[in-house]
């Protein structure tokens, strides 16, 4: 059970790191290239710890690379939110705000897990995602209350990611932290940021879900094809 949980959290971090990596050499300003790479590196570090642990718990001899490179998309357990294409900077920041605020509440509680490894990963990660949340907050405020164009784009970015919010808080069998318990503090934080930015939480009636069960968007297959092709072209090789 717990290996599925570690795997799901690890997949979230891995897939989002992969998406953020796409911004490198493409950010709006050099300073932001550096910032986004820092966030991607934090997430990649979390993914490596969590996948390694998931492999140990599973006991079938799979390490972080076996899990990252040799599973097909039906076996990935990340939420759909993290696999969506990056879109423009506003979509990326909308996702960052939503996801970092969720990860913060999650890791903050996971520190108290009876599982020492998960508690240790969470203890380190909570500081990282606190910064990610702050970074996204700063940008949502500036884009929401910047120019007409940035306000319009930021609102559109929220529209894009909002149907994928509910999935974060769905029940997960074997979870150390009940996802449903994260909703209220998440709502309080994100709601306050949007209010200050002059933005409304989108009134979407849509709820996309399935990632935790391996039912993904079409986007994930392409992401994995790119990520995995070299590793899979040389089975058994060391890099």
């Amino acid at each position: 059970m717990r290996d599925r949980y570690a795997l799901a959290l690890g997949d979230d971090a891995l897939i989002l790191a992969q998406r953020l990596g796409e911004w490198v050499a493409r950010a709006p300003e050099l300073e932001e290239d550096v910032a986004l790479a820092n966030i991607a590196l934090d997430l990649l570090g979390q993914a490596r710890s969590l996948l390694t642990y998931a492999g140990e718990l599973e006991g079938a001899g799979r390490d972080e690379d076996a899990l990252a490179y040799w599973r097909d998309d039906r076996d990935f357990r990340n939420v759909l939110l993290v696999e969506l294409p990056g879109g423009d900077f506003a979509v990326t920041m909308a996702r960052q705000l939503v996801f970092a605020a969720y990860q913060y509440e999650l890791y903050d509680r996971l520190r108290a897990s009876t599982d020492d490894t998960l508690a240790a990963v969470a203890g380190k990660a909570v500081k990282e995602v606190h910064y990610h949340r702050d970074h996204a907050t700063q940008w949502v405020l500036r884009l929401g209350d910047g120019t007409d164009e940035s306000h319009r784009r930021m609102a559109a970015g929220l529209e894009t990611v909002w149907p994928y919010v509910d999935e974060l808080f769905e029940p997960f069998d074997g979870a150390d932290v009940d996802p449903a318990a994260l909703r209220e503090p998440w709502q309080a934080y994100v709601g306050a940021v949007l209010a200050e930015a002059g933005l409304e939480p989108p009134a979407t009636g849509q709820h996309r879900t399935g990632g935790r069960r391996g039912l993904h968007t079409e986007h994930l297959g392409y992401l994995l094809a790119e990520m995995q092709h070299l590793h899979r072209s040389h089975p058994g090789a060391t890099w």
Binding site: E29, L30, E31, V34, A35, N38, D134, H135, R142
Partner: peptide, 20 residues
């Protein structure tokens, strides 16, 4: 030195650029 739109962003950018 670095470029930033305001003080709040400047101190964050400085963290990322000069203390990584």
């Amino acid at each position: 030195s670095l470029h930033a739109p305001d003080a709040a962003m400047a101190v964050r950018n400085a963290r990322d650029v000069y203390t990584r």
